[in-house]
């Protein structure tokens, strides 16, 4: 599984990244988590609001910081 957090580096994007990272570590999951800050790269996903979370190249969340339950759903927990 591969997860990308899209966002040009604002607070909300960092919060999102950290929240997902925490759940992954806590559950010892084998997930590749990356942060995408380059705007050209972000715009390839055709989103209009950041932060966005992409799971295996599919946009799952956009424009908000997900809560723990939503993150667990994303990770299939």
């Amino acid at each position: 599984m591969e997860i990308k957090v899209l966002g040009p580096g604002c607070t909300k994007c960092k919060t999102t990244f950290k929240a997902i990272e925490k759940v992954i570590k806590k559950n010892n999951l084998d997930v590749k988590l990356t942060k995408v800050e380059d705007i050209m790269e972000i715009m390839k996903y055709n989103i209009m609001a950041t932060p966005a979370v992409v799971v295996d190249e599919e946009i799952k969340i956009k424009g908000k910081v997900p809560n723990e339950n939503e993150i667990k759903n994303l990770l299939g927990l």
Binding site: I39, M43, M48, A49
Partner: peptide, 15 residues
């Protein structure tokens, strides 16, 4: 509004 959202919004509109 969040100043970092202005760019994706801008591109989204232009597109």
């Amino acid at each position: 509004f969040c100043s970092c959202s202005s760019v994706p919004l801008f591109i989204g509109f232009v597109r």
